[in-house]
Write a protein that binds this DNA or RNA. Structure first.
Lengths: 113, 113
DNA sequence: TTGACGTATGCCGATATCGGCATGCGATTG
DNA sequence: CAATCGCATGCCGATATCGGCATACGTCAA
């Protein structure tokens, strides 16, 4: 095999920092492609391509508004990601416990020097 | 610019399905590389490479155990992902509302035909 | 020390990705 | 219809990614 096809997967779509920025911006409401491109400092084709990926995985919806095309958020696709990470929630405290033990050990070592 | 460097980022690390499987398996406890490879049906070098990525972003910790190297979960790195997606939680219901309205509109249209 | 085992790393090929650029397409305006 | 605007798409180059293979590295046992 060569390389796994990761596109058309929500986890992959939000792996791109710029695409995450787009989603954050869209929380404030619908935007045109040009507006998004300008606010995020990217070219129009660049914004359009990222929006396409987000559209294909269902994270944004577009509607025509005259010459413009307004993109809006459809965050329901983020729910699986939220739930998947939530399955590890019980391990966060454990991690902190381990870190805590590590710090205590460090202090002990410093005292001994 | 050429391509953005996405590695050494948790979002990118969990964009790989096999890496997500590794994390899920490690919830049950520490495993050696060979065990992970066998349980997930991948080669030993393949498992080792994925584990390296997960280690570099801090999602797993390794410790030596004789000839073996046991990998364990450190899920604290998943917390930012959980929180980031959580920022969109308020939009999930909205999304359903919009879908609901869309379905209603469809029914209306069908009635009119 | 030598051999065996478990793991990591290096190299390669195939492919996917991203950014920039030019251009094509659709809708509006005159 | 022609011109223009907003957006999408295609092509390209540079690079990153993943899987497979061979091999180097480190540890333990004899």
């Amino acid at each position: 095999m060569t390389r796994a096809a990761t596109t058309s997967d929500v986890f992959n779509a939000i792996a791109e920092p710029q695409r995450r920025e787009i989603l954050v911006l869209l929380r404030a409401g619908e935007r045109s492609v040009a507006e998004l491109a300008q606010e995020l400092g990217m070219t129009q084709p660049g914004a359009s391509k990222h929006l396409r990926v987000l559209r294909e995985v269902g994270l944004v919806r577009d509607r025509k508004a005259g010459k413009q095309r307004l993109y809006g958020l459809d965050a329901s696709g983020l729910r699986p990601v939220h739930e998947w990470t939530g399955c590890f929630e019980q391990f966060w405290n454990e991690s902190f416990d381990r870190l805590d033990a590590y710090v205590k050990d460090l202090k002990q070592t410093r005292k001994a020097e």
